[in-house]
Write a protein that binds this DNA or RNA. Structure first.
Lengths: 216, 216
DNA sequence: GGTATTCGTGAATCATGGCTCATTCCTTGT
DNA sequence: ACAAGGAATGAGCCATGATTCACGAATACC
């Protein structure tokens, strides 16, 4: 063998792969999953369309990678928030509030991965995303709320958050942002039987910043 | 002019148009909006593909008609249930319960019109469907719950119902059906601040049948 | 410099699915 | 029975967007 990948090349390839993924993410965040097409992605990453296929064997795989990357980010954020909290109730509140605030902040992206029209190929990846979020919620729900079926309740809450905050009928982002998030989270928590979370200081005074910036 | 449409022909044409719509609806209910394609619809209606275009100028229009038909049915059902109820609270409960039970019963169809992947062309029709449902809920929400922003709360509740009952993560239809609906509705009502609806007889003892059959 | 190997390219190919239209079949009214 | 349309047909046309591939450019090692 006369040719072996050197470190420099390996780094360049990795960077390019990351660039492709970043381009896909940017397009999804700006114009939805629909806009994640090979040509635009390649264009945005500064390469030719065919080159994309040297890094991802099919568009499906690219989208899956994108979804997984977002999933990882959100799940980690939820975990971090929940683990910081002192007890089961505040842990659950933290998880919900974190998800709500982050989803709101990445509205378009999250919507493109959950509610927006998309082709069937990418649907299983999207389903996994939702399932991952439900799982994270359900894990905190179990100890905190024993009177409800945790997976069902978690699914219901996820729907409430997504539709109320990132769906097309959710209020536009802008003034009163904090109130919007607060209202939806309040409905979710009350729905779970956590009454008057606000007065108990579980929500407003939480140490987990509501205005946390979106991840890279 | 030697030819003028006779009543018999007019009736046949109307029947055929209805057949096309029914075929589209059946396909959507069985396999989702994705499966509503000209060829299969025509096939199912027992006509040629080209014939569909004598009744609907474009596929978009066909889908819009389908969505509107479903919308009308659901909205009417909600209205009827809400109007039968004695007061604001029970009216709201009735609206939510009716929507929940019917959505559950037409699970695939409702999901195909709200959550499932679809092409962008048909998206505005789907959005109108959701908006119509939110409107119906918001109308009952206003008088019943003054402490919340009605549209936002209605949107949130719709999300909870859809995700908890008809989404891909909702429990499969089967045994415990009543419990599933009950749980999700309970979460929704509690979220709105209607505490312990069950004990107040607003839900279980309501005169609006939970097991109402799906419309034609 | 020479050569084996990998990388990048983008025009061409393919698949899908909506839509058109020349043709054929039916209705109508005389 | 027949002429004048309307209705139905379905084989192709067309647009979109993913995927391929033959070729030239880079890279690694001698």
């Amino acid at each position: 063998m006369v040719y072996r990948q050197t470190e420099k090349v390996r780094a360049r390839l990795a960077a390019r792969k990351a660039a492709i993924l970043a381009a896909a993410r940017a397009l999804a965040a700006e114009q939805g999953l629909e806009a994640v097409q090979i040509a635009p992605v390649a264009d945005r990453a500064g390469i030719a369309a065919g080159t994309v296929y040297r890094y991802f064997p099919a568009k499906t795989v690219l989208v899956e990678a994108l979804v997984e990357s977002v999933t990882r980010g959100e799940v980690e954020a939820i975990r971090a928030a929940a683990e910081t909290a002192p007890g089961p109730l505040s842990s659950l509140s933290a998880a919900i509030l974190t998800l709500a605030a982050r989803a709101r902040r990445q509205r378009r992206l999250i919507w493109s991965l959950t509610g927006e029209p998309a082709d069937v190929e990418t649907d299983s990846a999207r389903l996994r995303f939702r399932a991952a979020l439900v799982d994270e919620l359900a894990v905190r729900l179990g100890p905190a709320v024993t009177s409800l079926d945790a997976p069902l309740a978690a699914t219901t809450v996820l729907g409430a958050l997504l539709e109320g905050l990132v769906g097309p009928l959710a209020p536009p982002v802008g003034a009163g942002e904090r109130d919007t998030v607060q209202t939806v989270v309040l409905i979710a928590l009350r729905g779970l039987g956590i009454v008057d979370a606000r007065a108990r200081g579980l929500v407003v005074q939480a140490p987990w910043p509501v205005e946390e910036p979106a991840p890279a």
